[in-house]
């Protein structure tokens, strides 16, 4: 386990160094990602400026939902986003290399991306988060900071689990982009807004089926001292556990897929 971790760190370090050989490209990417998220942020602020609130949530609270979702996404992009293009590795036979090296193929796959790739998302999300928590009057305590850390790790694992699942489906279907853009991407957008605007069925789906509600909706209740408003306040504290369970399940599916893997053209 420690050996795998050490190898992972060495490999992603090399990826980061490789990416920084193209500095202009890197900073242009950071800038353009900030612009992309800024667009949604602007649209959200227009809506809440115009209508005052959405289903009982004020502007700064809605932006807190959005900021928490983007914060988690920033971590997930840094660690897992390249899994979306896993079908290219399968189709071009590049994944076969991972099978003949003395390291867990999953670790090799995870190490295939520079960890600074999500810098744009992270910079924007941290700025939006600080702005939103300041405006929403979130009172920080050591316990809340610890809670936030747990939420950040748990949320990144939940989104990571979704991306690992997408790559696992690539073993069975030779497709990953389609699953990401048709399922994961829209589901991520759904939680940019308060969950209570949706029907009970959708709320249940985003809690149990694809548990993205644990990324921002439930944790925001704790940060805003509104956990008691939830039907089951315990939900607000489950993000790290849900993250670990979801990631373990996704890894299990990935291992199952690996067992049935046959190289393209065979």
């Amino acid at each position: 386990m420690l050996h795998a971790l050490r190898c992972y760190l060495l490999l992603v370090g090399a990826q980061a160094r490789a990416q920084m050989q193209y500095r202009f490209n890197f900073f242009a990417q950071v800038f353009s990602m900030i612009a992309t998220y800024m667009g949604q942020f602007i649209a959200l602020s227009w809506l809440t400026d115009r209508f005052g609130s959405i289903s009982g949530w004020k502007l700064e609270e809605v932006i807190l939902f959005y900021a928490l979702a983007i914060l988690a996404w920033g971590f997930a992009v840094s660690l897992f986003f390249h899994l979306v293009s896993f079908e290219d590795q399968i189709r071009e036979g590049l994944f076969d290399r991972a099978l003949v090296r003395p390291l867990n193929p999953f670790v090799q796959l995870l190490a295939g991306q520079s960890p600074i790739a999500g810098t744009g998302q992270l910079v924007f999300s941290i700025a939006a988060f600080l702005w939103a928590t300041g405006r929403a009057g979130v009172v920080w305590t050591p316990l809340k900071l610890l809670y936030l850390l747990g939420v950040a790790v748990g949320s990144a694992l939940i989104l990571g689990a979704a991306l690992v699942t997408v790559s696992a489906l690539g073993f069975f279907t030779r497709r990953t982009y389609t699953f990401y853009w048709s399922l994961v991407f829209p589901a991520r957008q759904l939680v940019h807004y308060p969950l209570n605007i949706y029907s009970q069925v959708v709320q249940w789906l985003l809690t149990v089926g694809l548990p993205f509600a644990f990324i921002n909706y439930y944790p925001a209740h704790v940060l805003l001292d509104r956990a008691a408003d939830l039907p089951w306040p315990l939900l607000a504290y489950l993000t790290p556990l849900v993250g670990v369970v979801a990631f373990a399940a996704a890894y299990g599916l990935w291992c199952l897929g690996l067992r049935s893997y046959v190289g393209a053209g065979s």
Binding site: W181, P186, Q189, Y198
Partner: peptide
């Protein structure tokens, strides 16, 4: 599959 994404967005915006 793209239609699934369309209907997810339709759900979002209509809600």
């Amino acid at each position: 599959m793209g239609l699934v994404g369309n209907f997810a967005f339709l759900l979002l915006f209509s809600a």
